[in-house]
């Protein structure tokens, strides 16, 4: 009985180590390709369009309603202590430092990260990647690097939209629903929000873009087992990407705090 538990634990640890090792090697290969080969500009822009521009509507909606609910929740709490004039700063700091980048990362993981895995995974099971290899086309240069670069660069822009619409959402609730002073909302943002807060949020977003695309392409490249395999890889990509973003968020906040 004890032996079987130890065996199970050992298998689990080996599996985790194998996955981390494979992912690290994959990431190093992508990085090496990025440095040593020419970037496919047109493919990178096409991916920026797919990952970024096509995600814009959901990011705007997410930002808007997050700002709105944040304003509402803050009001419920702050009216008890008479701090209504600080709602603007709370909403702005919330969406700029935390909710904007994290929710953008999670939404794009669900929308574009899954699509990256499904697309590359389907190419694997239909031998399209093998075909590229036999034609001596660098798969990392052709498929992986453009997606990673596009995602890393476009996520801060998407996050910027999320931040702006979050603040607008908060303003709508404060001014038009709760009938608070618009000057209080604007002034508190001016007084308490600093440029470093925005910079930190955008740096986080770039890292989240890197994480979701690296995980998405990795899961796609290691897809096996037909249509079911593509389904499994896509689910794992979204789950792993989201969890890694949440974990990275904590550590990035810690690191950025000291910068």
């Amino acid at each position: 009985m004890l032996f079987s538990y130890i065996h199970l634990l050992g298998s689990f640890v080996i599996q985790i180590c194998t996955t981390i090792g494979k992912f690290t090697l994959f990431f190093i290969a992508a990085l090496r390709t990025c440095i040593t080969t020419k970037l496919k500009i047109s493919k990178t822009f096409a991916q920026m369009n797919r990952i970024g521009v096509e995600s814009l509507n959901i990011i705007i909606l997410t930002g808007l309603f997050t700002g709105m609910v944040l304003a509402l929740q803050t009001y419920i709490g702050f009216q008890r202590v008479g701090g209504e004039q600080l709602i603007g700063a709370i909403v702005a700091l919330g969406v700029i430092r935390e909710l904007g980048p994290v929710l953008t990362g999670l939404m794009v993981t669900g929308r574009a990260g899954s699509a990256i895995t499904a697309e590359i995974g389907t190419m694997i099971i239909t031998e399209q990647i093998d075909a590229l290899r036999t034609l001596r086309i660098n798969v990392f240069q052709y498929l992986v690097v453009p997606r990673i670069i596009a995602s890393t660069f476009i996520l801060p822009f998407l996050t910027l939209f999320s931040m702006v619409f979050g603040i607008i959402g908060g303003y709508i609730v404060c001014v038009h629903v709760l009938e608070l002073s618009p000057e209080d909302y604007e002034n508190s943002i001016r007084n308490y929000v600093e440029i470093e807060d925005i910079r930190g949020g955008l740096i986080k977003a770039a890292f989240f873009g890197l994480i979701l695309s690296a995980v998405g392409t990795y899961k796609g490249i290691y897809t096996h087992g037909g249509a079911r395999g593509v389904g499994i890889a896509t689910t794992q990509s979204v789950v792993a990407g989201s969890i890694l973003i949440l974990i990275a968020n904590y550590f990035l906040t810690k690191v950025l705090e000291h910068l």
Binding site: M123, T126, E127, Q128, D130, A131, L132, T134
Partner: peptide, 13 residues
């Protein structure tokens, strides 16, 4: 030196 023709052609869709 090689060319490879796949069973289902493996064209990029």
């Amino acid at each position: 030196k090689f060319g490879y023709v796949f069973q289902f052609a493996a064209l990029l869709d």
